[in-house]
């Protein structure tokens, strides 16, 4: 198949960017989107041009490193990461618009690569549990309700790709933050820091310059891991509870 790419090109963080049109003939429909970009980059390199900068790592949909806006849809038309998106999802002859995640807290580094270290700082603010180290405790000594375990696991599947922020009309990272708050808050090991965790993480979220959540749900529609919308309510509930208890 033949496609036309319109890609965001930006040489560095402080330079002006623009959309560049690149004709891409002879694309196999079995290629992943990233493999297609690899082919484009090979051709650009052979022509002596600068290849398109794009982040990727595991290429099996579990690390959250790749991620771009494709036709203004985070990760493109399939609910999976860009490495798991295949060219058969597009039409022969289609023009595909590719842009980086856009948010004040995600500055563009180069082309399609953005700096997502704001996420790391949100996690560092409270996305952990404090437990004494040593040999692993007997699993049966801390029973967890099946429903809680399932719900916590749903939330724990977040890979921090940033699609929620890119899709959010407010540039909010609420789904990302809520996933971690729900994951740890529903488990017994997360209880001691449950109140301080949510407050610290939300404070860091706001400090990083992410917007406020307006409960529109665009984030959940594009999340490759299907993090449920109800985690955001759980975050709000935990936060109000912590504030009312004066934590």
């Amino acid at each position: 198949m033949n496609i036309t790419l319109r890609v965001w090109r930006q040489a560095g963080p402080d330079t002006e960017g623009h959309m560049e049109t690149i004709e891409v003939p002879d694309v196999s429909e079995h290629m992943s989107f990233l493999e297609m970009i690899d082919v484009v980059n090979d051709r650009l390199t052979l022509e002596g041009k600068e290849p398109i900068a794009i982040d990727s790592d595991c290429r099996e949909g579990i690390c959250g490193t790749c991620g771009v806006m494709i036709n203004r849809q985070a990760h493109g038309p399939v609910r999976a990461t860009v490495c798991q998106l295949h060219m058969r999802s597009f039409d022969d002859g289609e023009t595909i618009d590719v842009e980086p995640w856009r948010a004040d807290a995600f500055p563009v580094v180069k082309d399609l690569v953005v700096d997502r270290s704001a996420f790391d700082r949100i996690i560092a603010a409270g996305g952990y549990i404090s437990a004494p180290t040593g040999s692993a405790p007997e699993a049966h000594s801390t029973p967890v309700k099946k429903a809680d375990a399932d719900h916590a696991f749903d939330a724990a599947t977040c890979i921090a790709c940033g699609a929620c922020v890119a899709a959010c009309p407010n540039g909010s990272a609420m789904l990302f933050t809520a996933a971690k708050v729900t994951h740890l808050g529903l488990l017994p090991q997360g209880q001691p820091e449950r109140g301080s965790r949510v407050l610290n993480m939300i404070n860091q979220h706001d400090e990083e310059g992410f917007g406020g959540c307006t409960n529109i749900g665009e984030c959940t529609a594009v999340c490759p891991k299907g993090i449920p919308f109800d985690t955001i309510s759980q975050l709000n509930r935990d936060m109000l509870g912590a504030l009312l208890r004066g934590e």
Binding site: N71, R102, A103, A167, P169, N170, I216, A221
Partner: peptide, 24 residues
């Protein structure tokens, strides 16, 4: 105002999917 700063006003160049994916 915070949302306009965080997300930007004209954040994406493409004209496609301007109405979002599932929003009401």
């Amino acid at each position: 105002r915070r949302s306009w700063t965080s997300a930007g006003v004209n954040r994406y160049e493409t004209r496609r999917n301007r109405r979002g994916i599932q929003r009401t």
